[in-house]
Nucleic acid binder design. Structure first.
Lengths: 156, 156
DNA sequence: GGGGAGGGTTTGATTTTCCAACTCACGGAG
DNA sequence: CTCCGTGAGTTGGAAAATCAAACCCTCCCC
């Protein structure tokens, strides 16, 4: 009997199914920066226009962006993040921080984020309960779905 | 003269160039869980074997995973995260948290992470300097690259 | 010498991407 | 009025990536 054909049930996978396609998170980046217009997105992201069209549709369907007209006659549209979209911004910040640290030297960061506290933003992922920085060795995974352990599917 | 053809220089984009392809972050998830063997990855991720092969190669080249033999004769390999790979785990946790909150109800989370502090892990992205949770409205972007503003490229 | 694993390749059919060109609806300049 | 430019996409076809299934090779065990 062959093992289960279904992959591990996982919110990481489900989230990536919405925003994990090429360009999707860059669309969110631009929209969070306030650049919600089609041609701006094309220029700043460098994506083909048709791909951008499908990504935008998907993100709107997923409830991550909204499309609103900023002008009737002539009809002109703008994409803006929803609350759910804004709540993905920390993911972007965390990705940016990793890239700055691993792919660049200190003085060649392409963008610096300033926090309202007056300092340069360095995002840190912490545990809500204790406030400590999250580190791999402090984590233990507990699968909740019957049929799945950390190691994999049980008894097909 | 048409506007620049180059997209915005950005560490988010550069990081996604390494780990943004389909399955790559799921590979990292499994490897962080300790499931570094080829057939485990195939089963738990549900990716085609050939694609997995190319993803693994890319992640190793990027310095995010290493491939080590856990047995000579017969040769058997295992992929493990490097330090850089482990430092991407917070990104995964943040994605998981978003998915749990937006795509699920409280009682159907597929996986719960336990923090060493004894509590269930709820990852929060905070500012290193002030410790406050990062929220969109507290951020200001400062592009560092000549030719680029928040809005886009300047003077082609 | 047959039957598994484990760790991949190969093959061929389907999907996606990509890029350039095209459309349509206006608004303004001449 | 005609031409030009802008915004927001569509369309068409070639090139690349994905997919599923089958295949291969090396061992180990009986």
């Amino acid at each position: 009997m062959p093992a289960a054909k279904t992959p591990r049930p996982c919110s990481i996978a489900d989230t990536l199914a919405l925003v994990g396609e090429k360009y999707s998170l860059l669309v969110l980046r631009e929209v969070c920066l306030g650049n919600g217009r089609f041609d701006q997105l094309v220029r700043n992201i460098g994506a083909p226009r048709d791909i951008l069209t499908t990504r935008l549709r998907r993100l709107v369907d997923a409830g991550i962006l909204t499309k609103r007209a900023y002008s009737e006659r002539p009809q002109r549209f703008e994409y803006r993040p929803t609350q759910a979209g804004l709540e993905l911004e920390p993911v972007l910040m965390t990705l940016m921080e990793w890239g700055d640290r691993h792919l660049r030297t200190e003085d060649e960061r392409p963008m610096v984020m300033e926090h309202v506290c007056g300092n340069e933003l360095v995002p840190v992922v912490t545990c809500r309960a204790c406030g400590d920085e999250v580190r791999h060795e402090d984590l233990t995974a507990h699968p909740q779905v019957p049929g799945w352990t950390v190691k994999g599917p049980t008894a097909a």
